[in-house]
Amino acid sequence: MPETAPPAVEVRNLVKVFHLRRARGARRRSVKSLVAVDHVSFSVGQGRSLAVVGESGSGKTTLARMVVGLERPTSGEIAVGGRERRSTRVGSRERRHRAREVQIVFQDPYSSLDPRQTVGRCIEEMLRLHFDADRAGRLTRVAELLDQVGLDERHAPAYPRALSGGQRQRVAIARALACEPRVLICDEAVASLDVSIQAQVLNLLSDIRDRIGVSYLFISHDLAVVRQVSDEILVMKNGRVVEHGPTDRVLDEPADTYTKLLLSAIPRPGWHPVAESDPQPVAT
């Protein structure tokens, strides 16, 4: 890769402090603050993928929300494709521009699609915003995108309630890809899916990376999943980065005690979950 290409995403000393206001009527001064993200820096090269792992509440989602502009950083800098993002309060023109840079897929497939919008319209909405194609062109593209995520044209007129969790997550991925972003953030995008569907969606994601060269920011608390999809790992705890390095190095020779703790908490290779339909007596 040429040395001159700017990283797809670069984050420097990002901080987010939440001020938790007490219940109404309590003293005004009694405001507690919580540092959700504490001086986090990283960069993701073009076409590369970075996994952010950490326990619940470690600030992973907050980090992702800041990168896509859903949350305003308390301090720090975000640059996407070499372009600084200075403000989250921007007009729709700039927002449309940013949409072409970074897209996000959320954890919960049940609330990340508008229940009153068909799959086709959901994807078409993005196409209409970002490309000037006529309706026929858009419909062709919708079919293409659905095909790309392992669905087909038949699903276009369906409402989300008629789809399974895995199918909905595929639609959410297709919607994100419709913008042709350079970076795709997956915030626990497979966590709520069952294991076999998880594998399918993960394969799909790495497939898409090979095909269109998108960079990933992959948020997960499942280290087994992370190994499959990421080049680098960032381990977070209480908003801080405790370890950052190539996937194999971090997973095989963790330097930090917290990372070791995380690793010991997951099923290792060789551990086979017992199928539900196959009850076995519990060893005592």
Binding site: R65, V68, S92, R98, A99, Q103, S112, H130
Partner: peptide
Amino acid sequence: LPYVAACYVGGVSA
């Protein structure tokens, strides 16, 4: 809900 956030990130106007 996340679908509104997704629209926002997708560049849909307010």
